[in-house]
Design a binder for these strands. Structure first.
Length: 272
DNA sequence: AACGGGTGCAACCGCAAACGA
DNA sequence: TTCGTTTGCGGTTGCACCCGT
């Protein structure tokens, strides 16, 4: 890849390379007066010998006033790690959950620092089977009054507890089973005693803890690119469900009980 | 002081989606 | 619907800086 401080190719003295303070000021002044957008035209009108694309990048990642740069806090770091494990390299989505941070900065921070840190983290890199897979999944059911069911598996707890949060569901599903064992009957699900209100609805924000080994069967190296199955009670029949990931994005609109979820960060089951 | 390898950051590239005529 | 343009995104790379030898 060629990149020089000043281009000497035929593009009529288009500046490349690092921005000067003067160029920055021109861009800031112009955007303050005329606003963002139409970057190619903006570049011309502002008298910047830069490609429009370059102006956009410079503004969005460095010059925009509400941008926070540097000093990423441990909380932010933690959030980035969890979101990355959930979303993969979808930097814009990750940045969208860190106010003031840009995808650009997060990407760089990840590539230069966090990735190594995470790779060195034994807990992350040495997940023995399912036990340490943190999962957050929500299934929307047409039978639920508020259409939601959430499951969080927290690997930081020594006993691998699972937290279930059910919000106003008329019925609670047990959503996590791995593919190689379908023998455990639904009746064993720990939600049989889910508290309900007088109208047959589960109480808002209901939480229940139980051991993950009760609900997840061991599956050899069940990590990325493996498959897991979500099992629901028989009486849910062939209805289609909506599957939403931990950040609220719809993954499947018409998920059926026999469908599988790839265990990677593109769908419902994800590290987080 | 000189050199070389490692690191971090900013800028660029290619591609695809979104937009608008 | 088509097609050109703009925008957004993620990956890659150039280069300055640091540090050890």
């Amino acid at each position: 890849m060629k990149r020089k401080g000043r281009s000497c190719d035929n593009q009529d003295a288009v500046n490349r390379g690092p921005w000067s303070a003067e160029e920055d000021q021109i861009l800031i002044n112009y955007v303050q007066v005329h606003g963002e957008g139409n970057w190619r035209e903006l570049s011309k009108r502002a008298g910047l010998k830069r490609l429009g694309k370059s102006c956009r990048l410079r503004w969005l990642n460095y010059l925009k006033p509400d941008i926070k740069r540097g000093n990423i806090s441990s909380d932010e770091e933690d959030l980035i790690i969890r979101l990355h494990s959930l979303l993969g390299n979808r930097w814009s989505l990750i940045a969208g959950r860190l106010p003031g941070r840009t995808d650009h900065e997060i990407k760089n921070y990840w590539n230069t620092y966090l990735r190594k840190k995470v790779e060195q983290n034994h807990n992350y890199n040495n997940l023995p089977g399912h036990n340490n897979i943190p999962i957050k999944l929500r299934i929307e059911s047409p039978r639920c009054s508020k259409n939601s069911l959430g499951i969080v598996i927290d690997p930081t707890k020594s006993s691998h507890p699972v937290t279930i949060k059910s919000m106003s569901c008329t019925e609670v599903m047990m959503p996590t089973r791995t593919v190689n064992d379908f023998t455990t009957s639904w009746d064993k699900n720990p939600f049989a005693s889910t508290p309900q209100d007088g109208h047959g609805h589960c109480s808002e924000g209901f939480l229940k803890h139980f051991d993950i080994s009760d609900v997840l069967m061991p599956y050899e190296d069940c990590r990325f690119n493996e498959y897991a199955c979500v099992e629901v009670p028989q009486h849910f029949g062939d209805e289609a469900y909506k599957v939403i990931d931990a950040v609220g994005e719809t993954r499947y609109d018409n998920w059926k009980i026999d469908d599988y979820f790839p265990l990677d960060y593109d769908v419902g089951f994800s590290l987080f």
